[in-house]
Design a protein around this nucleic acid. Sequence first.
DNA 1: TTGCATACCTCGAAGTTCTAGGTATTATAC
DNA 2: GTATAATACCTAGAACTTCGAGGTATGCAA
Lengths: 115, 115
Amino acid sequence: MASTNPSFMNGVPELLVLRLLRGRQMYGYEIVQAIREETGEVVNLGEGVVYPVLHALEKSGAITSERRPVGGRSRIYYSLSPKGASRLTELTELWTRLTGAVQQVLVGGARAGLV
Amino acid sequence: MASTNPSFMNGVPELLVLRLLRGRQMYGYEIVQAIREETGEVVNLGEGVVYPVLHALEKSGAITSERRPVGGRSRIYYSLSPKGASRLTELTELWTRLTGAVQQVLVGGARAGLV
DNA sequence: TTGCATACCTCGAAGTTCTAGGTATTATAC
DNA sequence: GTATAATACCTAGAACTTCGAGGTATGCAA
């Protein structure tokens, strides 16, 4: 792994996948490209990252899969389950809290009371 | 580790430590508490996280150490080196880019052109 | 003198991401 | 017709972090 890159990626793939599946069904290969496009090339997850995440999410019951032939080719479409939706909410809150806290340190100086 | 917790912590300790050392010298135990306080208890890094990070940063030349006796007790004060300062800049930019990109996906829908 | 805060440290476990590689089908280019 | 690229799925091993628990030692307060 890039020894100079902390990359800040822990948990990000799971968060992004869950978020993308909120609303519409998607298949793995499509998700890989959607992440690249919707982040403006900033996040570029390989298939070797996305597929294992999908498998883990399915195993945990956060998403369900459905194999469907499309144009002679077989795709596995994933849908967000209720459990996955609440997981998404949980992760989004954690993400927001954490990035806010880090931001607080980064801007520094401004040390107002917290309520 | 908490199997249900992605925690989003990858790289965050390094970033916070470097940022705190920008401006004034600090010692490990002090850094542990400063992180807890300045993040409003959101980030609570144990000494088992901070000390190894400090050692790695020193080894890479990002910070320098100086043992100093204070009140009969020995403390190791760390200072940010020029190399550490540029590392901090680099990490801050990466952090900003990444959180921005994730935010873009989280808010979704709003798909304006990027320049 | 007992306990707590200070102040440093290491180790093993656990979990993630990453790159690289592998398979197979369809569409495109030559 | 055939080679190449794009689609679409997958696994394995390596590497990196963070985390918690535990260990040592000093100073101060009860």
